[in-house]
Design a protein around this nucleic acid. Sequence first.
DNA 1: TTGAAAGCGCTAACAT
DNA 2: ATGTTAGCGCTTTCAA
Lengths: 338, 338
Amino acid sequence: MTVMNDRSKTVQLEDIARELGISKTTVSRAISGKGRVSSDTREKVFECMRRMNYSPNMMAKSFSEKRTYNIGVVIPSDDIDTETPFFQTCLMGISKCCAPRGYDTLVIGAERGDLSHLKRIIGSRKADGIIITRPMQNGLTEQLLTESEIPYVTVGRSSEYGAVTIDSAHKEGCFELTSYLLMNNKPSKLGLILGSMEQSVNRSRYEGFVKAVESAGGLIPTKTIFLGVNGEMQLRRVIEDLLQRECGCVICGDDMICMYVINMLGAVGKVIPRDIRVASLYNSMYLDMYSPPITALSFRASDLGATAASLLLDMLEGKQTSQETMLGFEMLIRGSTM
Amino acid sequence: MTVMNDRSKTVQLEDIARELGISKTTVSRAISGKGRVSSDTREKVFECMRRMNYSPNMMAKSFSEKRTYNIGVVIPSDDIDTETPFFQTCLMGISKCCAPRGYDTLVIGAERGDLSHLKRIIGSRKADGIIITRPMQNGLTEQLLTESEIPYVTVGRSSEYGAVTIDSAHKEGCFELTSYLLMNNKPSKLGLILGSMEQSVNRSRYEGFVKAVESAGGLIPTKTIFLGVNGEMQLRRVIEDLLQRECGCVICGDDMICMYVINMLGAVGKVIPRDIRVASLYNSMYLDMYSPPITALSFRASDLGATAASLLLDMLEGKQTSQETMLGFEMLIRGSTM
DNA sequence: TTGAAAGCGCTAACAT
DNA sequence: ATGTTAGCGCTTTCAA
């Protein structure tokens, strides 16, 4: 007694072959497009595939091909960064690029440089390639990946470790924004507040700022430049200092700094932009919705992710890719600097 | 001529077996702990495993066991929601729970109810179970999953479709917060602004509010309750209305609404909490950093994710799980309502 | 252009 | 307690 109703659950390659009276091999070839198949049979196969609603068992396919059709995305899972929309937006950009190309996106958490999760993924061969969304200082992740001979792309830093990278034009953006503010300067001192200078992004920003001031023939306002600012307390002192020096316009390194600045200014009764103008070198929706909306540089995290994914998939398919890709920015001139 | 140096790349089950002079099966059993193995051989196997740095080929394991050790997470990929930290935080909670149990987390984007990505995952059998982070009105996702006989858990809604769900105590939270505000009411009208009433979370909030007012023996302040508020324009009118009615305290449905409210109040020169007190039924870091910090209910998205994952993994392992789980909240009483 | 058959590395029934 | 063996569903030589 043969039981066949179990077959009905999941149609597989062999079912199509049997239906068409041809071999599995031919069906496989028709679908993958790899071997030579007469266009006649190919059509039949496709028709039958659709009719029987076939979709390949990826586990078997992966196993056989030795590729998972997964790409892993290393994301900081520290409490702080977990709230930062950048990584999520970037991740969705990656996913949106991968899905139509038949790849899926695997989340790899990395808490404070802990690479154990990534190591497990590598060991178990569950991803064909990796995207690093926040390259760390030490380059340990890059090193690990290089040793494991796994293709990878980093988002947001120049290729210090020979990695393929994709970055935003922070320096150029900061240059443009600073230049704009200098031009429209109802003459007053310009302030700059940046976070940790160990992050290359802040170094780029600083370079852009300096270049803009010099291009405008001005002097670098060293007294009102604050680098490596970290935490509410420091920020509070910085604000006080800026106000005392009658700084008329302050450029904030990112949206978090900017939020603090806005709140602190409000708390001491300063009105934006009447008393002081404010701009941010990194936009976020909270800066959008503020009234007045805050002048800011807008970088599209989603595009960064999508581009990184696109590059990585190209690499996996053996295509040659450029070592370093730079994405542009948008300058949103809004009420806070009018 | 036999070439062996290729073997050296990846050590597999058979290498261990050969090294120890036992069979693959025994090694497999020792590792999985499924069959009976003498503690003596087991130790030897483990020692050898470590020594040879063996880690199983998950593709082969998956294929053989018919499980991927992946769980898929459906995440809204609309532009708006992509910025919402909730989903990312939830996702990281899921990932943190899955990783130590040997599971990985697959991102499944769902743009405006487009289930094609999910369907592909289902068809290709790339995930053993699914977590839905934002159940939709229509329950189509649930239906699809049920038909496909794939275990799933939904985050953030009561089990309308017979699904296993995990939710936060929004009603209870709103009750507590409202009660607190009523008690500390330097007598004045209480305002309430909620978003779309099609979201069950807002219905829960409303219930909590009403219950609190009734428990306090008060009258429902219908004139200052605004339901289904949506967009900046509407919100602006609501604020004006609230101010005209000399509302002394306003409860905002979530952090976005609250941000708008704060900004608009600031724009018309109202000082929090002197002129008007403000609270939010959903906290975020922006509410934390505001000065004064905003009184709010805090729900831990990360815990929601972790709990959902834990439930799902239990289900996959055949354990019985409760149909509905409710997570608590924290009430952050802060400067904005002092 | 097509087919037969041999794997891919693991698990699990069955035998011992 | 351990070994033998037969798959899992695909891809891919190698023949025809």
